[in-house]
């Protein structure tokens, strides 16, 4: 069990930019959309220049370390919370 897995689920309520070190020297950077409480898999979002969003899922068993780089501001929070929003709340946004 790694240290980062001991984090309370409450810590992920605010959006954070992280660097994930995974096994076999893989590294992933992005905004944490969610950390699955069952598998401990981390879902990251990165914004590309063409307005697309790249989603990366790093499986819990492969994660070695999570370094928090910075906290998201309100604008980032807004952008991130729209991704994977439930259908009912999507209906109200343009």
């Amino acid at each position: 069990m790694n240290d980062w897995q001991k984090k309370s689920p409450l810590e992920w309520k605010t959006y954070k930019m992280v660097k994930v070190a995974a096994v076999e020297k893989h590294e992933y950077e992005g905004w944490v959309l969610t950390v699955d409480p069952v598998s401990a898999s981390i879902v990251l979002a990165t914004f590309l220049e063409n307005e697309k969003v790249s989603i990366s899922v790093v499986l819990g068993h492969a994660v070695q370390e999570v370094e928090i780089l910075r906290e998201g501001d309100d604008e980032m929070k807004q952008r991130l919370s729209c991704i994977f929003a439930p259908e009912e709340s999507k209906a109200y946004s343009p």
Binding site: M1, K6, P9, L10, L33, T34, V43, F84, A85, P86
Partner: peptide, 27 residues
Amino acid sequence: ALLGGREEEVGAAQEARAALRQRYLRG
């Protein structure tokens, strides 16, 4: 381990965990 936390935090932790799990499933 993920259930950890003090007694008074249990409700808040459940809520946060549910939100994280839901977002994962929607992802």
